[in-house]
Amino acid sequence: MDNQSSGALTLKEILLGITDSLNEAQHKLRNMEPYDEYGRPNTMYQIPYLDFNLQVTSEFESTPQETSTTAVSSPVNDDALPSKSAVYYKPKMMFRPIKPQQKTSQTSSEVVSTISGRFVATMPNEGVPQILLRCNYQEPVLQNNIYSVPIEVVMENAAGEKLSGMRVEFNFNEDKTTLVNDTALITTPSFDAQEVLTNGLGIATNTITIDPTDYNSGKVLFFDINAGTIFKKISISKL
């Protein structure tokens, strides 16, 4: 790649660069002091959207690249045929700011174009109240040589409204459990159900089954509970 195209970027890199700068600016605005040194309210700023208009040169290049040398042998004489190497052209699309043209030995076709768009700020969770998970579990109960742990998950939003008919998933975090205890469990814990729907009160109940040897040895067991992208982590161990 010559000096002219050394500053070229992909469209992904351009857009990610804009978003990083936008996030940094919004972070600084959000962290401004609400009051000045005299106790007067400061003007607070937010960025609802950002329009951008970039004039760039789009270039489709085919840069020759040579593969490793492959020798072709003959059954009669190994030196009868010379070694051969394959040359192929790898195309790619790059963008760079417009600047004076320079000569290049590469085959390329360039188009001057304008990239326009808008980044729009959106509220978390699409503006609806944030969803919360509250998990409660009871002390393990030994029954039939197995420990049972009743667990209750309450699903509600930040406004205090209970969410019914929502799917709650229960999973055992084997990797974290093994890492913390430096050893794997004898028996993997299980659930009465892997997925449970919340009832009219926004409650989903389940039961975790734990091997008594693992529990009595003082190991810490980690579990992940989630409703979509909302996660809650709990740990169970013998005190």
Score class of each variant (00 low, 15 high):
S5H: 09
I14G: 11
I14F: 14
I18Q: 05
I18A: 01
T19W: 07
T19N: 13
T19I: 09
N23W: 05
Q26E: 15
H27R: 15
K28N: 13
K28W: 13
R30C: 11
R30T: 14
N31I: 07
M32A: 10
E37D: 12
Y38W: 10
G39I: 01
P41F: 10
I47H: 08
I47D: 07
I47Q: 08
Y49Q: 13
Y49S: 14
F52Y: 15
N53V: 06
N53S: 15
L54W: 06
T57G: 12
T57C: 13
S58R: 14
S68C: 11
T69D: 11
S74M: 08
V76Y: 12
D78L: 11
L81Y: 05
L81E: 00
P82G: 06
S83R: 10
K84P: 00
Y88I: 06
Y88R: 03
Y88E: 11
P91H: 03
F95H: 10
Q102R: 06
S108G: 02
V111S: 13
S113N: 14
G117I: 09
G117V: 11
R118Q: 11
C135P: 03
V141R: 12
L142V: 01
N144D: 13
I146L: 15
S148A: 07
V149R: 01
P150T: 00
V153F: 02
M155V: 13
E156K: 02
N157R: 00
A158Q: 12
A158C: 03
A159C: 05
E161A: 13
E161C: 05
G165R: 05
F170D: 10
F170Y: 14
E174K: 15
D175C: 09
K176G: 00
T177I: 04
V180H: 03
N181T: 00
D182L: 09
T188Q: 09
T188S: 06
A193E: 14
E195L: 02
E195F: 06
E195G: 00
L197Q: 10
L201M: 04
A204R: 03
A204W: 02
N206T: 03
I210Y: 00
D214S: 01
D214H: 00
G218V: 00
F222G: 08
F223W: 11
D224F: 05
G228P: 09
I230M: 12
K233A: 04
K233Y: 01
K233L: 02
I234Y: 03
I236H: 00
K238F: 01
